[in-house]
């Protein structure tokens, strides 16, 4: 089975972020980067499927030159080769632009299965995979918790995570695109031999096509204002609880 995994390089979680001077993105000139977490699970799932069914795992990433860090990491964990769509503007691009850049480089490859993370840790649109499926003309399913490939290798049964602890099993044909939920499997470590082998693996770098007119752009990025207020709710416990729920729902809007 020929599997593609799309990975994104994001600023390390919990990194002390600062808004860039342009106020449309974070300062990432001296940030520390890592592989987007759900993408790491997508990669692991692809490696497991390959171990089960044979075939090839190709990692695809769109971003500036620094993205080679996560590409090499993916190759060290066991991916066979990589496609890097390189473009400075892709660092903070919206989902549609990223999907378009990836689709352009992936079209000719005729993958049987394309896996992406469910969403990115930075922008978190959860759209790149879905738009990519559309652009590649593939059926897709999102928030995948389990992947079963039929014995004949021609179709899939996948488990989707719904709200409130509900799950849904979906049967779908191949080729297809799945967006993978974190925690679907246990991530493996890169081994010394894997790291050495990764050096000899092919990374195909293709320049990003000049972006189509952006469908959306970030107008302003700001740090949420911290405010803290304490309010005491009087009354008996049941009354106070009712009032608390009302306030959380109507004023704080967290419920």
């Amino acid at each position: 089975m020929k599997i593609a995994v799309c990975i994104k390089q994001v600023v390390t979680r919990d990194w002390p972020l600062r808004v860039a001077e342009s106020a449309t993105w974070v300062r990432d000139d001296d940030a520390s980067f890592e592989m987007n977490e759900p993408d790491a699970y997508a990669l692991e799932e692809a490696l497991r499927l390959k171990e089960l069914l044979g075939g090839e795992v190709v990692v695809c990433s769109a971003g500036p030159a620094r993205v080679s860090q996560v590409i090499r990491e993916a190759l060290a964990r066991g991916a066979d080769r990589a496609i890097h769509v390189e473009g400075e503007a892709l660092a903070a691009a919206e989902a549609d632009a990223v999907a378009a850049a990836l689709a352009g480089a992936m079209e000719g490859e005729s993958f049987d299965l394309v896996l992406t993370g469910l969403q990115s840790d930075d922008q978190g649109f959860g759209q790149t995979g879905v738009v990519l499926a559309e652009r590649l003309g593939l059926p897709h399913a999102t928030i995948i918790m389990e992947v079963d490939v039929a014995d004949d290798g021609g179709s899939l049964r996948v488990k989707r995570e719904l709200e409130s602890g509900w799950f849904q099993w979906v049967s779908m044909p191949l080729p297809a695109l799945l967006t993978i939920q974190s925690g679907i499997n246990q991530l493996r470590y890169a081994t010394l031999r894997g790291i050495m082998a990764a050096k000899r693996k092919e990374i195909l770098t293709v320049p990003a096509q000049s972006a189509e007119t952006a469908g959306q752009r970030i107008l302003e990025l700001y740090v949420p204002e911290k405010s803290s207020a304490t309010r005491f709710i009087d009354g008996s416990a049941p009354e106070a609880a009712r009032e608390l729920v009302r306030l959380l729902r109507e004023e704080a809007r967290v419920l």
């Binding site: 246990q186 991530l187 493996r188 470590y189 081994t191 010394l192």
Partner: peptide
């Protein structure tokens, strides 16, 4: 010898356990 990876706080192996390598 490099460190073992994938040991939990009680010293037990986690599923992703990867023994250290003797270089």
């Amino acid at each position: 010898r490099t460190g073992d990876r994938g040991i939990d706080r009680h010293g037990e192996r986690k599923p992703a356990f990867e023994p250290g390598v003797d270089i």
